[in-house]
Amino acid sequence: MNKIVTSKEDILKASREIASKDGLQSINMRNVAKHCGVAVGSIYNYFPSKADLIIATVEDIWKSFFHMGDDLYFKHFNDCVDWLFTTIQRGTKQYPGFFIAHAQGFQSSDVKQGREVMEEYFKHIQRSLLMVLNQDQQVKQDVFNDDYTKEDFIQFVFVNIMNLLSQQQPSCHILLETIQRVIY
């Protein structure tokens, strides 16, 4: 074990590789240390617990799925929804079982911090969707009101994206068609 892990990023990279190959359930301090070629204690220098390591790995994987770059611009809301669905779907192929495993793990365990990280990422996605919706010049002016707000619509779209992904649907074409009929 001569190799020295010099950064948190190296550990997270090893954790992502383990998650990609063997699933999230295979991430633990011993496996990551072995993968990095260091003593288990070295991992604890960066992550005080297995839960902290898994939470950081999950957050890192989510970032790799759909972090919108500054050069990414959507003229139409539907294009953004399609991109988001496709991007997450492609990511779940790289990390088989990730989407369902981490959501179930955070919901069924007492890992409050993990749930908070996941919820913050979901809020970030929803804020981005709202921003794109607000910029879409093709949206009918009379679609939204006090009883049917843009925020409600974004929540509906987001929940449906997540449901389609958790059901491992091959596309979101029905959702896209529904959006098309409602807002354009």
Rank of each mutant, 00 (worst) to 15 (best):
G69I: 00
R115K: 15
G69C: 01
Y73S: 12
F144I: 04
Q169F: 02
D147T: 13
H102S: 09
H67E: 12
Y73W: 09
S128A: 10
W83G: 06
Q137A: 15
Y148L: 03
Q107N: 15
V117F: 08
K93Q: 14
G114N: 04
P170V: 07
R90C: 14
D136F: 02
V81N: 04
Q138T: 14
N134H: 03
S109I: 09
Q135T: 03
E119I: 12
S64V: 06
L72K: 10
T149Q: 07
V157M: 01
N145T: 05
W83H: 13
A103G: 12
A101I: 06
Y73N: 14
S108W: 09
D146E: 15
L164R: 10
I125W: 09
S128E: 15
K75S: 12
K140M: 10
V157R: 00
Q167A: 03
R90Y: 13
G114R: 02
Q155C: 04
Q167F: 01
V111S: 06
K93A: 12
F106R: 02
T92D: 07
L84W: 07
S108K: 13
H102F: 13
G91H: 04
H102K: 07
Q104K: 14
V81K: 05
Q155H: 07
F122S: 11
F153V: 01
Y95P: 03
I100W: 08
F77L: 05
K112S: 13
W83P: 06
F156A: 04
Q141D: 15
S109Y: 09
L84V: 11
S166T: 08
N134P: 00
W83T: 11
V157K: 00
A103S: 15
G69Y: 02
P170Q: 05
F85R: 03
D110F: 07
V132S: 02
L130T: 07
Q168W: 01
D147P: 04
G114V: 03
S166I: 05
F65Y: 09
G105Q: 14
L133P: 00
K63A: 07
N163M: 10
K63R: 13
F158V: 02
D136P: 02
G91C: 04
R127D: 15
V111M: 08
A103L: 13
K63I: 08
D136V: 03
F65I: 03
V81C: 08
Q155Y: 03
G114P: 04
V132F: 01
K112N: 08
M118E: 05
Q135A: 08
V117W: 05
Q169G: 00
L72V: 10
F144N: 03
T86E: 14
L165I: 01
L165C: 00
T149W: 06
H124E: 15
S166A: 05
V132P: 01
F74C: 02
R90M: 14
Q107I: 15
Y148H: 02
V157T: 05
L129E: 11
V132T: 05
V132G: 04
L72R: 09
R115W: 07
K123N: 11
Y73C: 11
Q155N: 09
T87I: 14
T92L: 01
E116N: 12
F77Y: 06
R115Q: 15
F122G: 11
K150E: 04
L165G: 00
Q135C: 08
S64T: 06
V143Y: 02
P96S: 01
K112H: 11
L84D: 09
